[in-house]
């Protein structure tokens, strides 16, 4: 055992702070982006430009009562937000912020993040089932149905990058892009990745499992107070991780001129998150069957053709 307890506790506190701070910033940013894209200003009252609004909302949410429906499956209902959040929490571990700032350098970090992302879907399914509400159940079932449509193109994207780098380690992948970022070699793949990630994080225009216009609030219809805020935390942290993965896979991780590595990583991550928010407030929601056919008929062939071409070019 060459890891010290102090280090572990330090990492845990750091990751918890990151998750919390990130959620606070992202909720605020989302409302700001939404506002400005609709000729509004967004929250302006609490703090300068409303920056503390999320904090106030969070305090309100936490102090609210956690209502458990009578007919709900109590253990599953209570377990679901935790199952949804914990894997996301753990997926922060192998994410490199710079050459030295990384909780745990793992040679299969990429696989770990993808595997943990799958667990998050189970949390949604659990919530859908445990709520004993038909909208929630439909939301959970949709989360499972869409997983196949986006996971395969996503994995092919990731595999292409792995093939180019020859390593599962996120750090190695970032180091390999010291001179040229992968996005220059693989622009189409980058687009496919961003779309699959939007799908994966349940963001509009692909927010099928929440689908406000059809399913009330989808899987978290019955959740209030702490349970709801945990789901929110999970969603925004997942966005952070997905954007972090995009940064490492395509945008060269911490590489960039002048600024220190961590700053570059954060700038890139938040730019991608901004892109995802931009999608959300631009595009109307698509139907689930449209998404499924989009996933199978466009994303999968596109990523597959790209994979084969890349393999051919690398072999030459």
């Amino acid at each position: 055992m060459n890891i010290s307890l102090l280090g572990i506790v330090g990492y845990l506190v750091g990751i918890a702070a990151l998750v919390g701070l990130n959620a606070v910033i992202l909720v605020w940013l989302e409302r700001k982006v939404a506002g400005h894209m609709q000729f509004r200003l967004g929250p302006m009252e609490v703090g300068p430009h409303g920056i503390l609004q999320t904090l106030a909302d969070g305090i309100k949410l936490v102090s609210k009562q956690l209502v458990i429906p009578d007919e709900a499956d109590k253990p599953l209902f209570l377990l679901a937000p935790i199952v949804s959040l914990v894997p996301i929490f753990a997926a922060m571990v192998p994410l490199p912020f710079s050459e030295t700032v990384q909780a745990w350098e793992l040679n299969i970090g990429l696989l770990l993040i993808i595997a943990l992302g799958l667990l998050n879907t189970l949390g949604i399914l659990l919530a859908g089932w445990g709520s004993n509400n038909k909208y929630a159940l439909l939301g959970g079932a949709r989360a499972v149905a869409q997983i196949l449509a986006y996971k395969i193109p996503l994995l092919i994207c990731v595999m292409t990058i792995i093939m180019m780098t020859g390593s599962f380690s996120l750090r190695d992948i970032a180091i390999a892009q010291k001179d040229t970022w992968n996005v220059l070699y693989q622009p189409i793949l980058f687009i496919v990745y961003i779309i699959t990630v939007t799908l994966e994080t349940n963001r509009s225009p692909f927010d099928f499992s929440e689908a406000e216009s059809e399913l009330v609030a989808g899987f978290h219809t019955e959740y209030s107070g702490m349970g709801f805020s945990l789901f929110f935390l999970a969603e925004y942290s997942y966005m952070f991780i997905a954007a972090g993965l995009a940064t490492v896979l395509f945008l060269g991780g911490w590489h960039g001129p002048w600024l220190p590595g961590v700053a570059w990583t954060l700038i890139k991550i938040y730019s991608i998150i901004f892109l995802m928010m931009w999608f959300r407030w631009t595009f109307p929601r698509v139907r689930i069957d449209q998404m499924l056919s989009f996933g199978w008929k466009i994303l999968l062939p596109l990523s597959l053709i790209n994979f084969i071409i890349t393999a051919g070019v690398l072999a030459l």
Partner: peptide
């Protein structure tokens, strides 16, 4: 169709980005 759809999406994104830089229509 795919290429056309992609460019129409880009148009939509340009519109919303334009909105960001115009003055808000609301009054505080």
């Amino acid at each position: 169709e795919v290429v056309k759809g992609f460019f129409s999406l880009c148009t939509g994104m340009r519109v919303t980005m334009g909105n960001v830089f115009t003055r808000p229509a609301t009054i505080q």
